[in-house]
Structure formats: structure tokens, C-alpha cells
């Protein structure tokens, strides 16, 4: 006996095997990312005032990446539809575009967005020293307006050795615009457009700092969840790209000659996965970039 319904549908369920399998897999993926997103909610609700950063990510770049992923979801459907209509070369081109979109997304993430964060610095000031750094924090101004206080000074770290060398007693920071001009009403709310650090230098003594690090996962609960969730999402994108590439290269696409419907089914299954990966990003983008 051979395994039935690998390509054709079973009459009473109306499904072929892999389609059931992928939906179950996606159910488990929902629970996986659900666990991570609920951790995000838990940590954010628990965060003390001023300890959950805002406006540190580059919204235009994020928007572009969102558009790229959505576009690739469209092209993968077109690729599948082309196979259903038995137009192989249309499939080939649509699949190529999908793959390129995926690679672009990853490139933007890994070459631009993440390294830019790793190169940024933030220092959380001790409660008792907040007054001393008032010129950079502007908490009196914020209090008048009824806004959440600032506890962190961010910018470009000039003396990186200070991170590891206990003999260096202070951090030299080229301040971000918000700390350079904290009472400017334009800085009351986080910026949507990325602004580079100013040339205003601040010296922050280590003994006044509660915790300082580059914008790495260890920086805060915010960046911990940002890097974990986008990292896991990135791995999913990578997985999708690898499988797409396999079906695009002759090694996978030669199945078209033998059983085009089978190839169409395979592309449909990975396409469903790709839509899910897209959907996860639709949650990631507002949670980390906008809210």
C-alpha cells in the first residue's frame, strides 16, 4: 500500500495531506509567537514609568520593509496561480521576485537596522541623580505637561572602552536630539523620522548610572523582546527564502514536468507559511516601531 492523498484531495475532508499538515504547523506557530507577544505585553505592563523606550526604531525603514513583505505575499500568490494555469515562466519570474523581496527584507534588517542599534548607547540614570542630569532629561518640563518622565540618556558613545574598563569613570556621549534639547515641545513625543545624534557632548559619570549598555538585547526588556522576536521572525523569513529557492531552482522545479499539480501544491503550502510570516510582521511593526 502507498500513502494516499499526497496530491489529490480526500473526498470527505476535501484536503490533501500537506495542507492539513501546514495548517497544524501554523497553529503551533501562532502559539509560539503568541507566547512571545504575551511576554511583550507582560513585560510592558510591568515596566516602571519611563523605562519602556519609545521612538528608537527607524519608522520609514520599517514601513518600507513592511511594504516589501506584503508585496512578496502578493507575488507568491501570483506564482502559485501561474502554476495552476500551467504557465511555468510566469511562475519562475514571480517566484524570483518573491525570493528577492525576502532577501531584501533580511538585508535591511541585518545590514542596516540591527547594526545601527548595536552602535547606539543608552544610560539609565539613578533615581537620586536625575536632578543632576535635568538639562538632558527635561523632567520638570515633562511633569508640567503631565507626560511620563525620562530616565535614560541616549546617543553615540565616544569612549567605547568605558563599557569594559573600570578605570574610566565616565561615558562621553554625543547626545540624541531628544536629550540635547529636552524641553523643546517637538521632543515631547517620540519622533517618527530617524534623527542622527547631535554634536552636543555630555559627560555622564558612571556612579550616577544605574545601568548602561549599547542598544543590544541586554539593554532593556524592550530591546530584549525586539531582538528576540525580530530575530525569530528573521529566521522564519530565511527558512521561507531557502524553500522558495529550492522550488525555483531546477532541482525543485523539475517536478513541474512530472506532476505540475504537485509543485503547485508545494508552492501553496510554503505560500501559506509565507503569509503567516508576513502576518507576524504585521504585529511586530506596530508593537515595536509605532506604539
Amino acid at each position: 500500500m502507498e500513502i494516499p492523498y499526497t496530491v489529490n484531495t480526500r473526498p470527505d475532508t476535501g484536503l490533501w495531506n500537506a495542507k492539513v499538515g501546514i495548517w497544524l504547523f501554523l497553529a503551533s506557530e501562532v502559539m509560539l509567537f503568541g507566547g512571545l507577544f504575551s511576554a511583550y505585553i507582560f513585560l510592558r505592563l510591568d515596566a516602571e514609568p519611563g523605562m519602556w523606550p519609545h521612538g528608537l526604531l527607524n519608522v520609514p525603514v520599517g514601513t518600507m520593509n513592511t511594504a516589501i513583505l506584503i508585496a512578496s505575499s502578493v507575488t507568491v500568490v501570483l506564482a502559485w496561480a501561474s502554476l495552476k494555469m500551467r504557465r511555468f515562466w510566469a511562475y519562475w519570474w514571480y517566484m524570483l521576485i518573491t525570493i528577492l523581496c525576502g532577501i531584501t527584507f533580511l538585508t535591511v534588517k541585518l545590514v542596516y537596522e540591527w547594526p545601527q542599534k548595536f552602535d547606539h548607547f543608552g544610560a539609565f540614570i539613578k533615581q537620586e541623580a536625575l536632578e543632576k542630569y535635568e538639562p538632558y532629561l527635561g523632567n520638570h518640563h515633562l511633569e508640567e505637561k503631565g507626560l511620563a518622565p525620562r530616565r535614560e540618556i541616549t546617543g553615540h558613545l565616544h569612549n567605547k572602552a568605558a563599557l569594559s574598563d573600570p578605570n574610566i569613570k565616565e561615558y562621553d556621549i554625543a547626545l540624541d536630539p531628544v536629550n540635547a534639547d529636552p524641553t523643546n515641545p517637538a521632543n515631547d513625543r517620540p519622533h517618527f523620522l530617524y534623527q542622527p545624534s547631535t554634536d552636543k557632548i555630555a559627560k555622564i559619570e558612571k556612579e550616577d548610572v544605574e545601568y548602561a549598555s549599547m542598544f543590544e538585547p541586554r539593554h532593556s526588556a524592550y530591546f530584549a523582546s525586539y531582538f528576540t522576536i525580530t530575530g525569530l521572525h528573521g529566521l522564519h523569513v530565511l527558512g521561507g527564502v531557502i524553500v522558495f529557492t529550492y522550488f525555483w531552482l531546477p532541482i525543485g522545479s523539475k517536478l513541474y514536468k512530472r506532476n505540475p499539480e504537485h509543485l503547485a501544491n508545494r508552492v501553496e503550502v510554503v505560500g501559506l507559511f509565507w503569509h503567516f510570516v508576513d502576518l507576524v510582521w504585521i504585529f511586530v511593526f506596530p508593537l515595536f516601531y509605532l506604539l
Binding site: 506557530e29 507566547g35 516602571e48 530584549a224 523582546s225
Partner: peptide
Amino acid sequence: LVLAFPPLEAAIIMQIMDRVAATSFFMPT
């Protein structure tokens, strides 16, 4: 198994991050 194990996988990933990348998912202030 399909629905209950993934949240633990999420938790395991976070604990790995806590141990390897020094994050504070489960570490209070």
C-alpha cells in the same frame, strides 16, 4: 502537544537569551 509546547519553546528561547545574551526576561529589577 501542537498547541501547548510552542509557548514553552518561546519561554525556553527567552531563558536562553537571559543566560547567553544577558537579557532580563525573567529577571526582576
